[in-house]
């Protein structure tokens, strides 16, 4: 069953579009990664799904209903990011009491164990926590609430490496025990890759790709070899990424739709074929820069 459906979604802030003609369908009980560069529209999309933002155009349905101002959606969704603003007058243990009151599936034991494990002081106020600790606490809230739609918007901001790894592991374990729809956004795929089932790439407010992670890993291949040889065989339209290795040598990542004939031709000409790492591919596809960083330093 489709839990999230966006049709031609637009969101405009003054003159700039944060989302433009975005169409996407998300199935229930998956872990989905939403990957895009800063400013690609990830937060706007996620906040729209969480009912916090009204789109300027198009249609959005979550659990089959319009999410804005919707009590049913609010009861079944939690949106976690590093900007969560808790009451300045509540201590951590009071926030946990409130969370238990509001969320039907709240698991106190899990919350307590995670709080203990990560060393969050229950008597601190939320704004007294360090950036990393605040993110950790927010993530714990997201996990323990066990909402049918759990949204983590860049949840690991400020967390150190080992905490990030622990968080992703906790997320995966809890998801396996209690399957639900979890959307995790990030500008990088690297650390997320191992826990995701699906990946959605977003660029300039549009969904440019939505694949299962297995298909995504096969999505492209890398070719390195003579520039002229590759360019003569490979159609320019399928090039995802291009990097000059030397005057004559080049590395090109292309759509994995080359014909047998092209592949044989390339191999005969000494072009090396390698798989493209999913993390690299997501970076190539969402890249918004012109050329490579090396081009900036090239003397004209």
């Amino acid at each position: 069953m489709s839990i999230v459906s966006c049709q031609h979604l637009d969101k405009k802030y003054k003159k700039q579009y944060a989302l433009k003609d975005l169409t996407i369908e998300l199935e229930e009980n998956r872990i989905i990664g939403l990957i895009g560069r800063n400013g690609a529209g990830k937060t706007t999309l996620l906040k729209t799904l969480a009912g916090q933002i009204v789109p300027t155009g198009g249609e959005v349905k979550v659990f089959g209903e319009n999410p804005f101002n919707n009590l049913k959606l609010s009861a079944n969704t939690i949106y976690v990011d590093d900007q969560m603003q808790f009451s300045l007058e509540m201590r951590i243990h009071e926030i946990l009491v409130a969370a238990e009151m509001f969320y039907e599936n709240w698991n106190r034991e899990l919350a307590d164990r995670l709080i203990y494990y990560f060393g969050v002081d229950r008597y601190d106020f939320h704004d007294q926590l360090s950036k990393g600790m605040a993110s950790t606490f927010n993530a714990i809230l997201g996990l323990a609430s066990r909402c049918p739609l759990t949204i983590f918007d860049e949840p690991t901001t400020g967390m150190d490496y080992s905490v990030r790894q622990d968080f992703y592991r906790a997320l995966l374990k809890d998801y396996i025990a209690h399957p639900r729809t979890i959307i995790v956004s990030s500008h990088l795929l690297n650390e997320l890759e191992s826990i995701l089932e699906e990946i959605v790439l977003i660029k300039n407010g549009k969904c440019i790709l939505h694949e299962s992670i297995e298909d995504f890993k096969e999505y492209a291949i890398g070719l390195s070899g003579d520039k002229n040889v590759i360019q003569s065989i490979v159609d320019h339209d399928v090039i995802i990424h291009e990097k000059e290795l030397s005057e004559s040598q080049v590395y090109i990542a292309v759509d994995n739709h080359l014909s047998e004939k092209d592949i044989t031709g390339l191999k005969q000409q000494g072009v090396q074929m390698t798989s493209v790492e999913a993390a690299d591919l997501s970076m190539f596809l969402t890249n918004d820069t012109r050329g490579g960083i090396d081009d900036v330093f090239k003397s004209s």
């Binding site: 009590l71 049913k72 009861a75 007058e89 409130a98 009151m101």
Partner: peptide, 26 residues
């Protein structure tokens, strides 16, 4: 995972308790 269908007054009740905890400065 089954969805919860909250009714308005139970949410109002919970929100009031939440506000009671969080607006001590009042």
């Amino acid at each position: 995972m089954s969805l919860s269908h909250p009714d308005l007054w139970s949410v109002v009740n919970k929100q009031f308790k939440y506000k009671w905890m969080s607006y001590k400065s009042v």
